[in-house]
């Protein structure tokens, strides 16, 4: 088997007395979509925040591309090649879509004195931004981000993440609040991104998850309940039971 891109071991995070993430281990592989599902409050977003550096774990390790990154700052983790999107849209509201992506591309392409080049002359960034927007098939690149529809802002956010040329993508509910058609397009996009990235997908839309994920991890109360291929998860009695009585769509 190929070596994993990202490997988390016994990851834990406590808030006061609450163990939001409690001993989670998982691995991401290049070209694979790994979905994390579970009821609300299972610790999925906290898990993403631990992997992206927005939160520091109280215990455990995270290996990424030969580095130990548990507790590293978000900027260092992003520099190493992990990109993330947020559950709530998080873009630069007053910038155009193109400027959003160009700024994102700048994060990894410009350093030191090169930062004092005049922005409009740096073609490599313009090209990277255009490529990222094209990859998500975003057309209205001159529009100001805050004037875009919710679905478009979500799309833009993925494009920004891509502009940083990440190896791994952490996507936190990318389908939330989208209409059926938008949702369909986004699902297809994520499936496509899964071919050349290691993708961690947290998502409530079970249809989409079972359609595109290669591996599923089910979290309940901060712990991994079950992990495996979609068919195995679908057949698991424990998973069925965990979802009974909750308002989630049963798989």
């Amino acid at each position: 088997m190929t070596e994993s891109v990202l490997a988390a071991r016994d990851l834990a995070r406590q808030f006061g007395g609450l163990k939001a993430v409690d001993g989670v281990s998982l691995e991401l592989f290049a070209g694979e979509i790994h979905a994390v599902i579970g009821p609300n409050g299972a610790g999925k977003t906290t898990l993403i925040n631990l992997l992206s550096g927005d939160l520091a774990p109280t215990a455990g390790s995270i290996r990424f591309a030969g580095h130990e990154i548990a507790g590293a700052t978000p900027e260092r983790i992003a520099q190493l090649g992990i990109g993330r999107s947020y559950q709530r849209v998080n873009v630069f509201a007053g910038f155009s879509a193109f400027e959003n992506c160009r700024l994102a591309a700048q994060a990894r392409l410009a350093h030191g004195l090169g930062l004092f080049r005049q922005a409009r002359d740096v073609h490599v960034l313009n090209e990277a931004a255009a490529a990222a927007l094209e990859r998500v098939r975003f057309e209205r690149s001159e529009r100001i981000a805050e004037t875009l529809s919710h679905g478009e802002q979500r799309q833009l956010e993925i494009a920004m993440t891509l502009a940083t040329a990440p190896k791994a993508l952490l996507l936190d509910e990318p389908l939330a609040g989208m209409g059926a058609e938008e949702s369909e397009r986004m699902t297809a996009l994520i499936a496509e991104l899964g071919r050349d990235h290691a993708v961690l997908l947290v998502e409530h839309d079970m249809d989409a998850v079972f359609r595109i994920a290669h591996t599923l991890t089910v979290m309940v109360d901060g712990k991994v309940l079950e992990s495996g291929a979609p068919a195995a998860i679908r057949a698991s009695a424990a998973v069925q039971e965990a979802y009974l009585g909750s308002d989630e769509t049963a798989p």
Partner: peptide, 26 residues
């Protein structure tokens, strides 16, 4: 300075600093 890449990063920080960090800006 303000029209350079550095200046654009400053505008990004003014707009949304945590997003800048998530993109990899120190």
């Amino acid at each position: 300075v303000t029209r350079s890449l550095f200046g654009h990063a400053l505008l990004g920080i003014r707009s949304n600093e945590s997003r800048m960090r998530a993109l990899g800006f120190a």
